[in-house]
Design a binder for these strands. Structure first.
Ligand SMILES: NC(=O)c1ccc[n+]([C@@H]2O[C@H](COP(=O)([O-])OP(=O)(O)OC[C@H]3O[C@@H](n4cnc5c(N)ncnc54)[C@H](O)[C@@H]3O)[C@@H](O)[C@H]2O)c1
Ligand SMILES: NC(=O)c1ccc[n+]([C@@H]2O[C@H](COP(=O)([O-])OP(=O)(O)OC[C@H]3O[C@@H](n4cnc5c(N)ncnc54)[C@H](O)[C@@H]3O)[C@@H](O)[C@H]2O)c1
Lengths: 207, 207
DNA sequence: TTAACCTTGTGAACTCTTTCACAATTATGA
DNA sequence: TCATAATTGTGAAAGAGTTCACAAGGTTAA
């Protein structure tokens, strides 16, 4: 496939969100100009992004809201469901498990793991927490496709190594750690401290 | 000041993390080559980033770990403490409040707000949860500098408007909403659903 | 002190991303 | 049916960000 930049993928997510809203509000068509206005982009940017995947619009009219929404869903893989496992049922892990929106978008948290004997075996939001020592076996058996890491930073690399061993190709990591994975594994790290650091940088340098 | 790109700021955060580790491990100096290796960047990238803020290195030797760490801390504003308020003490909000690392980095959560009468007045991790209706007054009185938004998406714009009204210039938002702020306000949104969408895109397109 | 070596800091070149600008195409209203 | 208006899709131009390449300056060891 042609090269799709990270920024383009992010914008596709944003378009998708807007299109869902527009659909709910009853809009039938939307132009690149309107989408751009909402997302504070240029119309050309919107059209370039979409044109990477085909010609979805109608000249003179714009894009059909429903059609474009579904097209983007299919590009992002949101027309499927994905089996997700979460490792580390602590503060962050619990918050993620109780978040209903993920399932609505097709991200189904099927397995929970921890290494704390007090948590293992407990039912958490309808899912039994399993022992992380069985991680590789369980991930394979349940045909898990994505893993979320929410363990302490000093445990993260070790856990990720197991996850990779189980053949998982995509990982979302919340631990503030510099984690190494093989090239064919796609890992994204959400680092909230870095976000705060960005704020303090802005505060110092903008004023 | 010269233009500093968003990517540069992110990388500075990453360098800072590495330097703290290197310091702990007893390293005295580090070269751009070594830093680059650790962070999977090019040495030139590391040097370009740093050179935006001055000449911190020594030719033939590299950078002094401690000195560079402190220099970056000062660039990112991590040599100060910041007063932070958090709005929405739910799943995400609670996780953030109980996270000790933020305070260690100088981000002090001083105030909590909610609109749920059952939560207001309760002591949460040593902080009394206040009524969001007093938001503007309290933010001003406590000289809060940053705000974290962890309310439901449909409440976020309304709450942010109040925050802006209180004169706050930097906001970290966890609600998946397209929030508008005036130009002089710096807002960053952490959208976890978008991160998962990135994973599913990768899964569909990499294999 | 000197020679060999190493690493920075930075213009220039290169690459990637965004914006421009317009032909092509469709919608719409007289 | 036709003229006018609107909007897409896309090469080309412009702008940003990254990497190259090397002079300048510092280290190290004999
Ligand atoms: N809490 C926050 O707001 C916050 C903010 C930013 C980053 N983080 C990061 O997110 C991660 C989780 O944070 P948290 O606050 O939920 O921590 P936590 O201590 O509440 O939860 C961690 C969980 O992981 C489990 N665990 C530890 N080692 C494990 C292992 N080897 N295998 C399986 N499970 C293991 C623990 O038993 C615990 O249940 C950490 O890396 C933290 O740095 C958290
Ligand atoms: N839980 C997650 O893992 C997760 C994941 C992704 C995104 N988010 C987003 O983070 C935000 C918070 O999620 P959550 O799971 O913590 O929700 P939650 O319902 O657990 O918490 C929201 C809190 O905000 C309070 N609140 C509601 N309206 C308010 C108002 N107007 N002023 C002040 N407080 C108000 C509620 O009383 C509640 O305490 C939401 O926007 C959610 O979409 C959460």
């Amino acid at each position: 496939m042609r090269k799709v930049s990270e920024s383009t993928v992010k914008r596709l997510s944003r378009y998708y969100r807007v299109l869902r809203l527009l659909e709910k509000e009853g809009y039938v068509t939307v132009s690149s100009k309107e989408l751009a206005k909402i997302e504070k982009l240029t119309p050309a940017q919107v059209r370039k992004d979409l044109s990477l995947f085909g010609s979805f619009g109608t000249r003179g009219l714009g894009y059909k809201v429903l059609e474009l929404k579904e097209k983007i869903a299919s590009i992002l893989g949101l027309d499927k469901t994905w089996k997700v496992a979460l490792i580390g049922v602590g503060n962050v892990g619990s918050a993620l498990v109780s978040y209903k929106e993920f399932a609505k978008q097709g991200f189904l948290i099927k397995l929970l793991f921890d290494n704390d004997q007090r948590k293992i075996g407990k039912n958490h939001k309808g899912i039994i927490i399993k022992d992380v020592k069985d991680l590789v076996k369980e991930l394979k058996e349940s045909k898990i496709e994505m893993v979320i890491i929410a363990v302490p930073a000093d445990q993260a690399q070790k856990v990720v190594d197991q996850v990779v061993k189980a053949g998982i190709r995509t990982i979302l990591n919340f631990a503030p750690a510099n984690i190494k994975v093989p090239d064919q594994v796609f890992l994204r790290t959400v680092n909230m401290a870095m976000e705060l650091e960005h704020l303090s940088f802005a505060l110092i340098n903008q004023i």
